[in-house]
Design a protein around this nucleic acid. Structure first.
Length: 196
DNA sequence: AACTCCTCCAACCGCAATTCG
DNA sequence: CCGAATTGCGGTTGGAGGAGT
C-alpha cells in the first residue's frame, strides 16, 4: 500500500509560501546545505513536504537565480535547444545559468510557443505548420491562436535548416552542444552558498 | 467606475528515474 | 539482486493582477 509520497501527514501547508517560511528555508539551507529534502521540513521547522521545499528553493530562493526578463540571446538559445532536446526543460535550463526548468517551461508556454506559432512554425516539431494541423482544444493553443501578433518578432535567423530526417526528437544522450550562455561567475553545481 | 476577460507565474500532482539498505 | 524510499522531471492548474470594454 502505501506509497504515501511525501505529505502523509495532513498537517502540511500548501499553496503560496509566506515570507517566514521562505526565511526558514533559506536559513536552514545556508546552514546545512541542500539535500535530504525528506527530512528537511521537520529539521527546519516547516510544515511543508520535502518536495515543496525543494521546488521553492530551486525555483525561487536560490541565490544564483537571475530572474528578470529573458534576453534575446536566451530567447534564441531556448528555441535552438528545444529544437534539439524537446521538452527536456531541465537539460535546457542546465545551459542557461540562473534560469530554472520551471521558469523556462513557463516562458516557453507563454511566450515562445506563441511566437513560433505566429510565424507559422509548429512549436513541437519546429517545422512549418501545415494546413492539416489538427485544431487542438488546448488552452494554450487557443491563446496562441488568438494573439497571432508577437510583441517582438525579432529573432536571430535560425531557419529550419537541420532536422532533415523524419523523426522528431533525436537520440542525443550526451551531445556536447555548443549552445550555452557563458556564466558570469560560478558554476551552478559548484556554487558555494554565501555562508553566514 | 465597475465589470469581465485574458495573461502569466508559482506551485501542485503523478510518474519516472535513481539511490539506498 | 531486489524492493523500498527518495529525488527529479514534466504536465497541468489556480489565482492574482492587468487590460480592455
Amino acid at each position: 500500500m502505501g506509497r504515501s509520497p511525501c505529505c502523509e501527514k495532513a498537517h502540511t501547508n500548501k499553496g503560496a509560501w509566506t515570507r517566514e517560511e521562505d526565511q526558514r528555508l533559506v536559513a536552514y539551507i545556508k546552514a546545512h546545505g541542500e539535500g535530504c529534502w525528506r527530512s528537511l521540513p521537520k529539521a527546519a521547522g516547516l510544515m511543508r513536504c520535502g518536495k515543496s521545499c525543494r521546488l521553492r528553493w530551486i525555483n525561487y530562493l536560490r541565490p544564483d537565480l537571475k530572474r528578470g526578463n529573458f534576453t534575446e540571446e536566451e530567447d534564441d538559445l531556448i528555441i535552438n535547444l528545444h529544437q534539439i532536446l524537446g521538452n527536456k526543460w531541465s537539460q535546457i535550463a542546465g545551459r542557461l545559468p540562473g534560469r530554472t526548468d520551471n521558469e523556462i517551461k513557463n516562458y516557453w508556454n507563454t511566450h515562445i510557443k506563441r511566437k513560433l506559432l505566429a510565424r507559422g512554425i509548429d512549436p513541437q516539431t519546429h517545422r512549418p505548420l501545415s494546413a492539416a494541423v489538427a485544431p487542438s482544444c488546448n488552452r494554450q493553443d487557443k491563446m496562441a491562436a488568438r494573439s497571432s501578433c508577437s510583441p517582438e518578432t525579432s529573432c536571430a535567423g535560425h531557419s529550419s535548416d537541420d532536422d532533415s530526417g523524419g523523426t522528431s526528437v533525436p537520440r542525443l544522450a550526451n551531445i556536447d552542444l555548443n549552445l550555452s550562455i557563458s556564466q558570469p561567475s560560478q558554476h551552478p553545481s559548484t556554487r558555494s552558498l554565501p555562508e553566514r
